[in-house]
């Protein structure tokens, strides 16, 4: 007779509700929201059947009266968040970026942005971070869709700590915001206690040969590449354009004035995203600087574990270094 086991025996076994341990970067979402509630702000959080994926289960356990589970009804969640925001509360609602940025695009435009309501939309597991879950779960268009919606601020933090800092700063931001964040497994670059300023780029290095302008996950490897190359006598700059909209125009123009080349790097289609936003600034100002747009080159990503995809699409440090060296010779 077989013996029923109380639990698996190996420490390597895990289940969905233990995802917090695997995605520590997303702990920062709940951390930021808990600190806002503790400070007395009328915030609430909601999710569409993904509280263990985005870590909001921690917020929900702490403040059950401030959390709403919407089930698998993303459009309903976004429209309801808009209704909640009319009453003076500030809702933070989260689901996969692939669904927020495309499935709920119209609800975001009509109910959130057009109505100018302070709803915070958190699109997590963005880009190709879902790896072999496939194209339905990849978000390589969300910057493009969200950026074209008037009155919507678009923020793409590079890691969990920067997301937490931006969440805390958002309490003073009276407009709707789309946060585009990863899956919480990125190595930390920032300190969660650092100030986050909407619309202000963060300069990590200055360079005359080339400046990388990146957002999201590629920022950290880009910083590592610049450090390595600059230590070897090259001159490569890195700017974290964490706020994609409104874009820090001065930062783009200063980089263009300083560097021979510009390169944008994003975990997004090169059409419509950060590269397009930088190109618009250069064109608007009549700056004839060569811009290399790097990201997903107008295609659907392959099936593979995320790290393999980042290597394949040259979004990791090795791939970025290869592209930079090719550009600067």
């Amino acid at each position: 007779m077989s013996q029923a086991l109380a639990r698996p025996q190996s420490p390597n076994s895990w289940h969905y509700r233990e995802l917090n341990q695997k995605n520590p970067g997303l702990d920062h979402l709940s951390n930021g929201l808990i600190s806002l509630v503790e400070a007395g702000h009328p915030v609430m959080a909601g999710s569409a059947d993904l509280q263990y994926s985005n870590g909001l289960n921690r917020f929900a356990a702490r403040y059950p009266d401030r959390y709403v589970g919407f089930g698998i009804s993303e459009q309903n969640m976004v429209s309801a968040a808009a209704g909640i925001a009319t009453t003076g509360m500030m809702p933070y609602v989260a689901t996969f970026a692939s669904f927020l940025g495309l499935l709920t695009c119209e609800q975001i435009r009509m109910d959130v942005a057009y109505c100018a309501l302070p709803v915070r939309l958190i699109g997590h597991h963005t880009g190709i971070s879902m790896g072999f879950y496939g194209t339905s779960h990849h978000a390589t268009e969300d910057i493009g869709t969200m950026r074209s919606i008037a009155d919507l601020t678009v923020v793409s933090p590079a890691d969990g700590p920067q997301l937490e800092a931006a969440i805390r700063a958002s309490i003073d931001h009276d407009r709707p915001i789309y946060f585009r964040t990863g899956r919480g497994r990125e190595p930390d670059l920032y300190d969660p206690k650092a100030d986050f300023v909407f619309g202000k780029a963060i300069e990590h290095a200055r360079g005359e040969e080339l400046t990388i302008i990146a957002c999201g996950l590629p920022v950290h490897p880009a910083v590592q590449v610049a450090e390595r190359l600059n230590a070897a006598g090259r001159s490569v700059g890195v700017i974290d354009m964490a706020t994609v909209k409104p874009i820090d125009r001065d930062a783009v123009l200063e980089a263009a004035a300083r560097s021979k080349l510009l390169m944008t790097i994003e975990e997004h289609n090169i059409i419509g995203g950060l590269g397009a936003a930088v190109a618009e600034v250069l064109a608007d100002e009549g700056v004839g600087k060569r811009l290399i747009r790097h990201g997903i080159h107008d295609e659907y990503a392959l099936i593979a574990p995320p790290t393999h995809l980042y290597a394949h699409y040259k979004l990791d440090a090795k791939g970025i270094e290869e592209l930079v060296l090719k550009a600067i010779g």
Partner: peptide, 10 residues
Amino acid sequence: SNGLGMALAG
């Protein structure tokens, strides 16, 4: 959905 949000917030 908008009304649902208002009722929840209320």
